[in-house]
Each structure stands twice: as structure tokens, then as C-alpha cells.
């Protein structure tokens, strides 16, 4: 297998790993709390991309049964699983997106509280203030 087809076959994993690491780096190394929160969102989005990419199937279309409402229920003999991409990761990620949004909301609320307390969002300045207070 030559290098181009190797990259093409695993590109989805590589992309998600790079995004994951970008998010993790922002969470570890950034000084500003809002930047850390942005890093957290990137981190979660990377995992969402990973899941959605494993749902993809070559030759599959979006997971809505074609002409489904023309026939109603009971007529499923012509439905072939290979024609549709895997719906389960999409469902899981709908839930995970909601969880991510909820976490983002709570994180922003906490960041506002921190800002009200210290007047800044830079972590080293906050640490300085804490040391001064003893």
C-alpha cells in the first residue's frame, strides 16, 4: 500500500487526533480561562468528528429510508443495509453535542463568577491575587 492511499484510508483518524491534541494543548498551556474553555470545546468536537466519521460507509447515503413514506410500514424487503450509512454514531453524537453545549454553558457561568471575583481571566494574575490574600 503506497503512502497516498494509506493517508486517504486513515485521514479521518489523523484529523481527529490533530484536533484532539490542539484542544488538549489549549487546555493545558493557555493562560486565559476563556481560551481554555475554547480548547475544551475543540477537544469535545474532535471526538464528535471521530464518531461521525466511523459511521460513514462507502456507497451509503444518508440514513433516511428512500420512499419510506410512500409505502408505510411492513414493506422492507428491498431495504439493504449497505445502501445506508450507519445511523448509530449520529444518534450518539446528537446526545454528545448536547452534553458539550451544556458543559460549555456551565463553564462560561463559572468563568463569569471567576471574573466577578478577581476582575481578570488570566490564570497567573489570579494566582498572584490569591497569594497576596494569603
Amino acid at each position: 500500500m503506497d503512502i497516498v492511499s494509506l493517508i486517504a484510508a486513515k485521514a479521518n483518524y489523523w484529523t481527529y487526533v490533530i484536533l484532539l491534541m490542539v484542544g488538549l494543548y489549549a487546555m493545558v498551556a493557555k493562560n486565559n480561562l476563556v481560551k481554555k474553555i475554547v480548547g475544551m470545546v475543540i477537544f469535545q468536537t474532535a471526538v464528535i468528528l471521530f464518531y461521525v466519521s466511523i459511521g460513514y460507509k462507502k456507497g451509503g447515503t444518508l440514513p433516511i429510508i428512500m420512499h419510506g413514506h410512500d409505502h408505510g410500514h411492513g414493506v422492507d424487503s428491498f431495504i439493504k443495509a449497505a445502501d445506508y450509512i450507519n445511523p448509530l454514531p449520529h444518534v450518539l453524537m446528537l446526545t454528545a453535542i448536547v452534553v458539550g453545549v451544556a458543559t460549555l454553558g456551565v463553564a462560561l457561568a463559572l468563568a463569569i463568577k471567576v471574573y466577578q471575583e478577581y476582575g481578570t481571566l488570566e490564570e497567573d494574575e489570579i494566582r498572584k491575587q490569591i497569594e497576596l490574600k494569603g
Binding site: 463553564a107 468563568a111 471567576v114
Partner: peptide, 24 residues
């Protein structure tokens, strides 16, 4: 408490997201 909770949130989210990745 908000500052330490925010740190808890960051680490908790990393932990939960790693778990989610493992499930994937």
C-alpha cells in the same frame, strides 16, 4: 470555589471525553 470548580470542570471533561473516546 468557582475557580477550583472550573479546574474540576476542565479535568472532569477531559476524563469524560476520554471515556467517550474509549467507548468509540
Amino acid at each position: 470555589a468557582p475557580l477550583s470548580t472550573l479546574n474540576y470542570l476542565f479535568l472532569g471533561t477531559i476524563g469524560a471525553t476520554f471515556y467517550l473516546l474509549g467507548v468509540g
